[in-house]
Amino acid sequence: MNASVEKAINHEDGTEVSRDVTLVEAVNMALAREMANDDNVVVLGEDIATNGGVFRATVGLKERFGYKRVMDTPLAEALIAGAAVGMATQGLKPVAEFQFMGFIYAGLEQIISHAARMRNRTRGRLHCPIVYRAPFGGGIHAPEHHSESTEALFAHIPGLRVVIPSSPQRAYGLLLAAIRNPDPVIFLEPKRIYRAVTQTVKDNGDALPLDTCFTLREGDDVTLISWGASIMETLQAADRLAEQGVSAEVIDVATISPLDRETLLCSVAKTGRAVIVHEACRNGGFGAEVAASIAEGAFLDLQAPVVRVTGYDTVMPYYRNEAHYLPKTEDIVQAVEEVISL
């Protein structure tokens, strides 16, 4: 077991523990913290108990909390999604893991037709405090169905929250908030940065707000808007632009549905320009919703058209072409240079 994870999950007295952890380790910390705080929190999924999950996000939890709260399931995504609905309506708080986002589609019937509608269907008598976790996105040389970025599909469904952390600190705080939320949350973890960076995370049980954008960097000339793993290239682009004398404001959307439009509009009102970055394909991507929101709410503030830097309108390619598909730092810099020149 990774030493930082082992230390993080073995505190028994509720005291605050700080560790330098990766994003996947922060997920583990949050799960352990909330399972210790609330006996109704249970974890289920394929290979998540005995093996600790394909990315080891749940390692050590079965040993600490037992097989009744950390459950290996059959390889049946519809079963995982549906069982979580049943558990949630009867007082539990299930955290259900899909091994990869590309495997989640078999569970859409349960997620869309039942979890997302339960509060409305029962006029508030029942609700579904479920977190559906899934690693998503490309960048790890995975085969087909392992590199999906279809977050816009879930953002279109009323009744679902869609949350995407982009750092260890936000993964910890947002996952705690998601588990405590009374309605279903799709929690998408960018596996390309699972172990790319470490941050000091205080395991103090403090959640971060949902439905809120995070301004990572202040700027005056252009607003860079992104989420998930693409935040890494977006911040790198901001650094390069600073060397050219361009001041870029960087916003991590974090919760793409419901969208915090106010933060985005306030930023664009200040900078007058916006560039949106995401690795999902362009057509119907969530960047289009962000662009429409800016056009509707900040049109008179814009000094140039809103620009999107995205993946291509193709299936995510196999690993030899994967780097070509993903938006790169230089792509973002070029887009900003174009909007600045207008």
Score class of each variant (00 low, 15 high):
I193V: 14
T215V: 15
V197N: 11
S230L: 15
L174A: 11
L160Q: 07
T200Y: 00
P168Q: 04
N181G: 08
L160K: 05
E151V: 05
R180E: 14
R170H: 14
A237W: 02
E151Q: 14
G228L: 01
I157C: 12
A177M: 12
F154T: 06
L208F: 01
G139M: 11
R161E: 07
T234F: 01
I193T: 07
G205L: 02
S230H: 14
V246G: 08
S167F: 09
L174G: 04
A171E: 10
S149N: 10
E148F: 12
N181P: 11
A196G: 09
A177I: 12
A207T: 01
E218L: 02
I186T: 05
T223L: 01
G173M: 03
L175Q: 03
R180P: 14
L175W: 01
E144Q: 14
V201S: 01
E148Y: 12
D206I: 00
L235G: 05
S147P: 12
L235E: 15
F214I: 09
R180G: 15
F187E: 10
R192W: 10
L208R: 05
D183I: 10
P143R: 04
L174M: 12
L235V: 09
V246H: 09
A177T: 10
T150A: 13
V246Q: 11
L160D: 03
T200A: 11
R217L: 02
T198W: 00
L153V: 13
D211L: 00
E218Y: 00
D221Y: 03
A237G: 02
P190Q: 08
P182F: 10
W227M: 12
S149K: 04
A142Q: 15
F214V: 08
F187K: 05
P182G: 10
D211I: 00
L160N: 07
E151H: 12
Q199N: 12
C213T: 00
P143H: 08
I164T: 07
V185D: 06
P168Y: 08
N204V: 01
A142R: 09
P165N: 12
R192C: 08
L235S: 11
L216H: 05
F154G: 04
N204M: 02
A152I: 03
A155P: 11
L160P: 09
F214M: 11
A177Q: 11
R180D: 14
G159N: 06
D206E: 10
A142M: 15
H156V: 08
L153S: 07
R170L: 12
N204R: 03
P190A: 07
L210D: 01
Q199V: 00
A238L: 07
A238M: 06
A207W: 01
I231Q: 01
Q199E: 15
G228Q: 03
I193K: 02
G219W: 01
L241K: 05
L160H: 05
A171G: 10
S226R: 04
L241W: 05
F154I: 06
A207I: 00
I225D: 02
S147A: 14
T150V: 12
A238P: 07
I225S: 02
V246C: 11
E218Q: 13
